[in-house]
């Protein structure tokens, strides 16, 4: 039952990704080269709506927040590696699957690479756990906690900044 819900949710998400035409290599590279902001518009819209909705549910006691520990070593080095890889493949994990769904066969090679990368990471994990993952371990923190402010202050500011950015994209025709 639970897994069926996952399948249906995934279908709806894949449907929306394809409708917005955000799963293409050309669009993803367009964003990385700061020439076409379509995927940034999609992602930031999702984040803003998700942020407001999830925190609303949380404040009403209807949902649990789930976040991961901040480990600067892992976040920064992993983020840089992800960026280099993303620039080469031109798909991120979920979009590689979606891109293959709309017929882009190069995404299948990317998918296989990602499975390989996951296997390699499983091999490297004990070493990473002793080294990189001990560097700058801040534990479970959120931005509102770090700033010592109410979470709605951060949400409102973030949403306002997002909308400002959207207006700027439209003015520049990005």
């Amino acid at each position: 039952m639970m897994t069926l819900a996952g399948f249906i949710t995934g279908m709806a998400f894949g449907f929306l990704l394809q409708k917005a035409r955000v799963i293409r290599y050309d669009k993803q590279l367009g964003a990385l080269r700061l020439m076409d902001m379509t995927i940034v518009k999609f992602m930031l819209s999702t984040v803003i709506v998700g942020m407001v909705g999830v925190y609303l549910l949380h404040d009403l006691g209807l949902a649990e927040l789930r976040f991961k520990p901040t480990v600067l070593g892992g976040n920064i080095i992993g983020g840089i590696l992800f960026g280099i890889g993303w620039g080469l493949i031109g798909y991120c994990p979920a979009t590689s699957v979606a891109a293959f769904g709309e017929g882009r066969t190069d995404a299948l090679w990317g998918f296989l690479g990602m499975v390989t990368g996951a296997g390699l990471y499983a091999e490297a994990y004990p070493l990473m756990n002793r080294t990189v993952l001990t560097w700058g371990d801040l534990g479970m923190v959120t931005i509102p906690q770090l700033l010592g402010v109410n979470h709605w202050a951060v949400i409102v500011l973030f949403a306002a900044a997002g909308i400002f950015l959207f207006r700027w994209f439209e003015r520049k025709g990005l």
Binding site: I77, L81, I84, L88, I89, W109, G113
Partner: peptide
């Protein structure tokens, strides 16, 4: 690219 991205 997929290999590097997923490791990261």
């Amino acid at each position: 690219g997929g290999t590097i991205a997923m490791f990261g």
